[in-house]
Amino acid sequence: MTVEAEIIGLVHKEAQLLDDWRLDEWLEMYDDEARYWIPIDEHADPERTSSIIYETKPMLRLRVEQLMRENRLAQSPRSQMMRLIGNIVVTPEEGGLAAARYNLMMMELRSGDWRQQGLGEKRFFAGRCEIRAARKDGAWRILNKTITLLDRKQPVYGMSFIL
């Protein structure tokens, strides 16, 4: 299989694990030193400027724990999610590395009693994703992921899941 095909497979696998709420497996796709970034200002240094999320793997592990094994109010009922991925461009790099850019359209719905405020609304999260991955022990691990949302400078409503 080519590097390109493998990275496309990696991107689709990540989307599938998130859609299926298999977050423990999702987390293991990330390298121990990974950074996960949803910027407000994608040109700024995330160590010095506000982001929607800028986290290391240990912090992501905390989120996964809360979402998978604690009864989070903002996820009762749970979000149902569907990710569409398009326009993937893979760039193989030297030394067992690869980068990819793609567009993400994620539709999310919390149903429950759909007539109540905050429930029953299909919401759309559109963004440009960039990942870098490294081949380690025969498998690709994500080193960095950045999701630059279209509406990143505006208020975000109810982001209580992993995008």
């Binding site: 407000i40 929607i52 999320i53 989070r72 109010l73 903002a74 905050g118 975000v156 409503y157 982001m159």
Partner: peptide, 15 residues
């Protein structure tokens, strides 16, 4: 923050 581990649950109660 926007996607706070703590804060997003307050919003649920406001709703």
């Amino acid at each position: 923050g926007v996607a706070g581990i703590v804060g997003a649950d307050d919003v649920e109660v406001f709703h």
